[in-house]
Each structure stands twice: as C-alpha cells, then as structure tokens.
C-alpha cells in the first residue's frame, strides 16, 4: 500500500474534524474492503481515519419497537447478540453468514452499508426491514440510502452512527452465495411488518432493490406459492463468470420463495 496518515479519534466529533481537514480522507470501520484495496494499491488516500476507538458507535440495544445497532458493531457481535436473536433472529442469521470468521470478527454493519457493495448482505436487511440509517448529521430512510453501485446518500463528512431496525412480525434472509467469495450472488430479505411486506434483493443488481410485485402478492397471502411465478427481468442485472443475469433473475424468485417459507415456518 501507499503511505498515508493514520488517525484513531476517540469521539465522533474528532473523527469528523479529521475527515474534514484531510485532503483525501477515508474512514475505516472494519477495513474489510478498504485494507485489501489499499494493499492492491487501488486507492491512495491521504489520511485513514480509524473509527475503532469511538465508543459512541458501538453497542446493540432495544429501543421501544426498534433494534438499534451501532455502526461499529461487528458481524460476529450481531450474530451472537441475545438482543438481536430475540428481536430479529433473521438479522442474526444474516450476520452469521457473512464472509468467514475472520471477516465476521472485523467487519461492521456501518462499514458494510457505507461501502454499498452490490453483493453485500446487510443492504438487503436494511431495505427489507425498512430501517433508518442514523448519521452524525441526520436520519436517512433505507429506501433513500442506497443510490447505486458503491453509492449511498452519504455526503462528504457524513459518518454512519447506527442503524435502527423496526421489529417485524416475521422475517428471513436467504442467500445464494458466490462459491468462491461467499458474497451474495443473490440474497433475498423478506419481512412482514405492521406496515406491510417488504422484499429486498441484494447481489442481483448494481444496488439492493425491492420487488414490488412480490410485496403486493405477499401482502395478500404470505406464502411461498404466492410469488412462485413472479419473475424479475434480467435486464440490467449483474453478470459475471459465476452467474449470468438470466440465472440471477431466476434465483431472485427462488431465494425470495425460500425466504418466505423460512419466515412463515
């Protein structure tokens, strides 16, 4: 990697200040994407601001009818948290399926959603549960947060502080992992809440997306059969050596159906 200045602030304010005064600063949460990128010399930030020392970004708590997960909560903490397991077990299971044990013990929810990798798991839960992303400046609704390939609504100097998930009646996540990387080729998060049904898909497109036709059908009948014939178009979906767009489109229906079965079961 190229040389950079390293900062490890102990408060959010200090982090924002360091980021603001850096010529080309990068925030580092778990570093699971940033470090490999630096090692491959694909990025050359002037400053790296490590968020690992900021206590206010940590922690998982229940707040009324919501589950609030600090931005620096590691995947392994979410996976093993009793609070998460009792409130939204599907979220704990999603976290348990991310990467491998090393990644789960370093990677964070804040880092994952701020990076907005098209094949990351968390975006499916954030959108699928209609969560709210909290930053040092504002609160952003899930549907407004993910803007495209590695693109979010975050502005310069804005730092994710927590994600607040409403607690659903039923929810499940089903992932078809890339056999090599274990990222999602297709991951479908399905949730039934007081406000309706949500179906959010990661991995298949440039960014996480909802499938309105499935949501409407499931609102009428929350059963796998209700969506078995609902297909998404292959146009615009991702394609690589592991899965064509057509195959991904097919898998969206399969994984959503299986998620409904798991949630309903």
């Amino acid at each position: 990697m190229y040389d950079f200045s390293y900062h490890k602030p102990s408060s959010l304010a200090e982090a924002a200040k360091a980021l603001g005064s850096a010529e080309d600063g990068k925030l580092m949460a778990g570093g699971m994407t940033l470090i490999p990128t630096l090692k491959q010399r694909l990025a050359r930030p002037s400053d790296v601001i490590d968020l690992g020392g900021i206590v206010e970004l940590k922690g998982i708590r229940r707040a009324g009818n919501a589950l609030v997960i600090g931005a620096m909560a590691r995947h392994a903490e979410v996976a093993h948290s009793d609070v998460v397991r009792s409130a939204i077990p599907a979220l704990a299971e999603l976290a348990e399926g991310i990467g491998d044990p090393q990644v789960r013990n370093r990677g964070t929810i804040g880092g994952s959603i701020a990076n907005a990798d098209p094949a990351a798991d968390y975006p499916a839960a954030v959108v699928g549960l209609g969560a709210t992303v909290e930053t040092n400046k504002r609160k952003i609704a899930a549907d407004d947060f993910f803007k495209g390939l590695f693109e979010t609504a975050l502005e310069d100097g804005e730092i994710v502080t927590a994600v607040s998930f409403p607690i659903p009646e039923k929810a499940a996540y089903m992932k078809f992992p890339n056999p090599a990387s274990r990222y999602a080729i297709v991951g479908a998060f399905v949730a039934k809440t007081g406000g309706g049904v949500r179906v959010a898909v990661t991995g298949a497109g440039p960014s996480v997306f909802r499938v309105a036709a499935m949501e409407q059908a499931l609102a009428k009948s929350f059963t796998p059969d209700a969506i078995k014939d609902i297909k998404v178009a292959a146009d615009g979906l991702n394609a690589d050596i592991h899965a064509s767009a057509e195959y991904r489109a097919h898998l969206v229906t399969v994984m959503a159906r299986r998620a409904v079965a798991a949630a309903a079961g």
């Binding site: 890339n178 056999p179 090599a180 990387s181 990222y183 690589d240 050596i241 592991h242």
Partner: peptide
C-alpha cells in the same frame, strides 16, 4: 465441482484471486 481457471478470450485472467477462483 468448484475450481476453474478462466481466461477471457483476450487472455486476461478472470480468476486471479480467491474472490473468483473457488478453492
């Protein structure tokens, strides 16, 4: 079942890391 070295027709190695070469 898993391993496959893939070059594109122009000779670029598409499976140049464990992200794509499945051990």
């Amino acid at each position: 079942l898993l391993e496959n070295c893939v070059y594109d027709p122009e000779g670029q190695l598409l499976t140049g890391s464990y992200m794509d070469y499945c051990m």
